[in-house]
């Protein structure tokens, strides 16, 4: 069975999809596109599509990943075009490769996130980031499926910085001061998510943006030892010979 690895983006209004919404949309798009997806055996067959580390509901992403098992060999470029055409605008297929060995999820060691915070003073953001990075441990709380959990939001954060410049908040016409934070977070259990980092900033530095941030995952992949940033998780598959 051939396996195809897909990188896709979740943009604009479609950032409000949950991972369950996305899996339904992908299953239907695969069917509409006529991709010969393989099905599991058994009483209630399921299409062989697996998802790796979906971004939370409400968070946009340029780097989501899934893997499709197909019955007969497919040209990855054609699958990219057909699947993209069948998905609603906003769920956009960026890249498809044929899988070589190894588990894709294992390669997704970390993520780079961007947080746009309208109405925030850049100097105050700088100060909060500095205090956060200076701490060894920043305990935050989040409601998980297992109830309220306390965990450290500091150690997983590999880098965190204020990117200069005012901007325009997505969808809003008025230009207002906007701080952009960029951070690289190592994937751990429980996962440290952008809102956990924001809560950490509030706890250590009293940093409280007036409105919810617009968050985007920019990249996901193996963390490069030199740069500390996520590298292309498909590099290994591509090295196997791109047709």
């Amino acid at each position: 069975m051939q396996r195809l690895r897909v990188r896709y983006a979740k943009r604009g209004r479609l950032r409000f999809t949950s991972h369950r919404d996305i899996s339904r949309a992908v299953e239907r798009a695969v069917r509409r596109a006529g991709i010969p997806v393989a099905y599991s055996a058994g009483f209630s067959p399921h299409p062989k599509i697996s998802y790796a580390g979906a971004a939370p509901t409400g968070v946009a992403s340029e780097a989501e990943y899934l893997e499709i098992g197909v019955n007969r060999p497919c040209d990855p470029r054609r699958v990219r075009d057909d699947l993209d055409a069948s998905l609603p605008p906003g769920l956009d297929v960026l890249d498809v490769v044929e899988a070589r060995d190894g588990n894709l999820a294992d390669r997704l060691e970390g993520s780079m996130w961007e947080l746009r915070l309208p109405g925030v003073d850049p100097a105050e953001a700088e100060r909060a980031v500095k205090e956060f990075l200076a701490a060894d441990l920043v305990e935050v709380e989040r409601l998980t499926k297992k109830g309220m959990r306390r965990f450290d939001a500091r150690q997983a954060v590999r880098s965190l910085a204020v990117v200069e410049g005012p901007g325009i908040t997505a969808g809003q016409e008025t230009v207002q001061p906007c701080v952009i934070l960029r951070m690289v977070v190592r994937h751990e259990t429980p996962a440290v998510r952008p809102d956990d980092a924001l809560m950490g900033l509030r706890l250590v530095a009293g940093f409280a943006p007036p409105s919810p941030p617009a968050v985007t995952r920019l990249a996901q992949g193996p963390l490069d030892a030199m740069t500390g940033e996520p590298a292309d998780p498909f590099a290994f598959d591509r090295a196997g010979g791109d047709r």
Binding site: R13, F16, R28, G58
Partner: peptide, 18 residues
């Protein structure tokens, strides 16, 4: 849009159905 992160199942309010 700014209200949507604060509600349950925000996707139901954004439209864009196939």
């Amino acid at each position: 849009e700014p209200l949507l992160p604060k509600v349950q199942k925000p996707i139901q309010y954004v439209g864009g159905e196939l």
